[in-house]
Amino acid sequence: MNAENTPEVRTLSYAEAIREAMDIALAEDERVVLMGEDIGVYGGAFQVTGDLVEKYGETRVMDTPISELGGAGVAVGAALTGLRPIFEFQFSDFATLAMEQIVNQAAKLRYMLGGAVSVPVVMRFPAGSGTGAAAQHSQSLEAWLGHVPGLKVVQPSTPEDAKGLLLAALDDPDPVMIFEHKLLYKMQGPVPEGRYHTPIGKAAIRRVGSDLSIVATSIMAQKAIAAADELGKSGVEAEVIDLRTVRPMDRETVLASVRKTGRLLCVYEGVKTLGVGAEVSAMVAESDAFDFLDAPIVRLGGADAPIPYNPELEKAVVPQVPDIVEAAAALAQGRT
């Protein structure tokens, strides 16, 4: 399949790509340790760490007690003193238990200490709805953490980026929070061999278009691509920007697209109110790209409700492909 002399690109799942990144990091850097609940012989709640414990042992792949606050804090303290911990939360919802260490310690230590230290910790958060796990195991809390200066927050939407962003996070001196969408874990896609970085703070233009810009995050980037393909059939050419990093946001890529298309649709799974799309919208509205807008900005986000259990309700509270198609068509046709 690789007749050309290019680096090997195989198809891996999103979860396998993350595991490969951790495998590379563990093999190359003694300072790297994985910490989390049931990431050892169990393989992780979503089987992301898999059998890494067999390869690297329990001192490198550490099962923690069910102690999110303590565990996250240990990772912070370890990062502060020379290790490169990757801390896995079983569900991103459990970040709420560890907020003290994430928000008050990891994010602020460098600043509070006048730049004397860095906290190179990586935290992984399986996030999002669609698994029937209901209100306490389905949230998208990236905007919570994105609100905190000192943190970096990324949301890979492809296997390639899941690996590249994790490796970039490990080489980053500051705390990086990775929100992985649970429904993407099984997604297959090409993943380059070996070590590479997907740059933090850089969005990806997934599809080029001229009629409107869809700025989406995480799984919504995939849904936006599907919607854009659908729209293409009726002659509406949507540009799809996968934000990839929520903080720091790739201002230039978004603004350039909006200057070109004059229309902006933000699509994100987190609750619409005060969410990532609000920031994207404000960023555009405050910039010179405002002058290029030819319609009000439209946001599609999660409903102002907890994620419900019933599968139809669960689908209804987050944007789906037909919602994106409809909103994008209305926007492109000047109906909004």
Binding site: T59, G70, V74, A75, A78, L80, L83
Partner: peptide
Amino acid sequence: PIAVGAALSAKRL
């Protein structure tokens, strides 16, 4: 927890 993390570093390193 930070102290525990520092101790973990000391032990590992």
